[in-house]
Design a protein around this nucleic acid. Structure first.
Length: 263
DNA sequence: TTTCTCACA
DNA sequence: TGTGAGCA
């Protein structure tokens, strides 16, 4: 019995397709040990080791066109450099996946805490939040795609962020995203009255702001500083065709007995 | 079962 | 950079 194996046996052994082995042959990186009388390719131990080497290099991202050069001519230094480069790529990918994992956890957490609310209104104790300015709006202008493209500072993953809409005393609107301290604006630590719900951008929004102001007045809260509208667009995954908004305002600590506001 | 070739993603 | 199909 011959010790060499056929292409399908080699493919099974190395967990690749027959096609792929023939493709490596076409590219000049893996020749069979010999071709039998019936034109079948036959492979021995040398070819098995060579294929395992090829597959390892492919896993490291080496293009098929470079395999031959890499296996036959690379110095130890060149091989080490190749592995270091690949390690760097893997670390970048791990970083990307870690950020993705944290984002998914945040979305699930936000959705869970929103759906467990017994009332859209709540009082929250918040730590200071530092905000970075994104776009300043003219009072008359509407926020459109063009405006975001032209005027917003580039923010990676903008629509995965909590976008803060802040109106100043002259009713000028500025958009912010959360950032590390110091940032351009600070929402101080303290107790915030909050109203959360999905809404359409215009009509329902005005209504929401009005309701919020009325609620604060009814409950005797004194609003300190600007009212902030936080857009969590990623939560619209759970409320189709509506964006999720949370209105927040720092309240003065006149009434600490009322921890939940119902309407 | 394998080879080869061509089309396709 | 492979894969799928058809043919001998």
């Amino acid at each position: 019995m011959k010790s060499e194996i056929t292409i399908s046996e080699l493919a099974r052994l190395m967990n690749v397709s027959v096609h792929q082995i023939r493709y490596f042959e076409e590219k000049g990186v893996l020749e069979p040990a010999y071709t039998s009388d019936n034109q079948y390719r036959m492979y021995g131990m040398d070819e098995i080791y060579r294929l395992s080497h090829i597959l390892l290099l492919r896993k490291l991202g080496v293009p098929v066109g470079l395999l031959k050069e890499c296996m036959d001519n690379y110095s130890a230094d060149q091989s080490r450099h190749l592995l270091q480069h690949f390690l760097h790529d893997v670390e970048d990918e791990l970083k990307r996946l870690e950020q993705l994992r944290q984002f998914i956890r945040k979305v699930l957490h936000e959705q869970q805490s929103y759906s467990s609310l017994s009332s859209p209104y709540a009082i929250k104790q918040r730590d200071a939040v530092h905000l970075a300015r994104l776009v300043e709006m003219d009072p008359s202008a509407n926020l459109g795609a063009r405006q975001i493209v032209e005027r917003a500072r580039r923010v990676p993953h903008l629509f995965e962020s909590d976008i803060h809409y802040v109106w100043d005393d002259s009713n000028r609107l500025t958009l912010y995203t959360e950032t590390e301290a110091p940032g351009d604006l600070v929402m101080p630590e303290g107790e915030y009255l909050t109203l959360q719900r999905p809404a359409d951008q215009d009509d329902e929004m005005d209504q929401m702001i009005e309701q919020f102001s009325n609620c604060a007045a009814d409950q005797g809260y004194i609003i300190q500083g600007p009212m902030v509208l936080i857009e969590k667009s990623y939560l619209s995954l759970f409320s189709k065709h509506k964006l999720h908004y949370e209105l927040q305002a720092l309240i003065s600590p006149t009434d600490r007995t009322c921890k939940e506001v119902r309407r």
